[in-house]
Simulated assay, not measured.
Amino acid sequence: MREIKFQVFTEDWKGVKKCFDCYYLYLLEEIPLSFGTPKDGRWYKVAFTNSEGDKETVVVDRDKIRMFTGLKDKNGKEIYEGDIVEFNNCDYQRTAGHLDDEIIVGEVEYSCGVWGLKEANGQLHDLYISLVNDEEAEVIGNIYENSELLEWKE
């Protein structure tokens, strides 16, 4: 059974801005107008352990919350939504008769019921199949802290 876990990208009271592990996530029904309008129309209350080990809560919209995929990379690092993963895509070339190695870098996202790895050209690879077939897949960053790895998104 897949473990259900979340992270939130936020700034804690010490000014540290990163992805923190969540221990509580709640969809809020009523939000004061002072919060503005979230991108997906919903605000979430998130509780996390900050950089000092203290418990803290924030209200964020959905694009700051990362869900755990249930998968790990070659180093045993957990893979979350919004992670940037690099892997070697070995496509068999029927005409050439040999393996063609191609390094692919993409963003992990949930689409059409599966976790996918979205390339610069928009192609979506099934993340599970990519990891099972390639032991070299590795998390190299995430869209919040390392957006420069995905310059193609701009």
Rank of each mutant, 00 (worst) to 15 (best):
D83M: 02
I143S: 01
E11Q: 07
I31F: 07
S130Q: 01
I65L: 03
N121V: 04
N142E: 04
E151M: 13
V139T: 04
I4L: 15
N75K: 08
P32Y: 09
I84R: 01
T57G: 11
W115R: 01
E78L: 00
I79A: 01
C112H: 09
T95N: 15
L99W: 14
F6H: 11
T49P: 01
V60H: 04
Q123A: 14
E154Y: 12
Y24D: 09
N75V: 02
R2V: 10
G113S: 05
Y110P: 10
K17F: 02
K17N: 02
G97T: 08
N146M: 09
W13G: 04
V60A: 02
T95E: 11
Y26H: 13
N88D: 09
S147A: 07
K77F: 01
D54A: 14
E138V: 10
V16Y: 10
D12A: 07
R42H: 15
F68C: 03
G116R: 07
N133S: 11
E30L: 01
I79W: 00
E11C: 05
L25N: 03
K77L: 06
N50L: 02
G53Q: 04
L71C: 03
I4Q: 13
T10A: 05
N121G: 02
E3D: 10
L149E: 03
Y92H: 07
V114D: 04
R42K: 14
A96D: 06
K118H: 01
K55M: 13
E3M: 07
D91W: 14
G97Y: 10
Y26I: 12
S51A: 08
Y44L: 05
V58Q: 08
K14H: 11
V8P: 00
L149P: 03
G106R: 00
E145M: 00
G97M: 02
F48P: 06
T37Y: 12
P32M: 13
V139I: 02
G122D: 05
G70N: 05
F20E: 06
K72I: 13
E102Q: 14
V46K: 00
E3I: 09
R2M: 10
R42Q: 12
E138G: 04
K55L: 15
E11Y: 03
R42N: 15
D63L: 12
V60Y: 05
S111A: 11
T49G: 00
D21E: 09
A120K: 05
L99D: 14
C22W: 06
R42Y: 11
D100I: 15
A47R: 11
D61T: 08
D40F: 11
G97V: 07
L33Y: 13
L28R: 00
Y26F: 15
K72T: 08
I65H: 03
D101A: 14
F87P: 01
Y110E: 10
D100A: 14
L33K: 13
D12Y: 00
F48R: 02
Y144H: 06
E3K: 15
F35P: 09
A47E: 12
E119Y: 06
T57L: 10
K17M: 04
L150P: 03
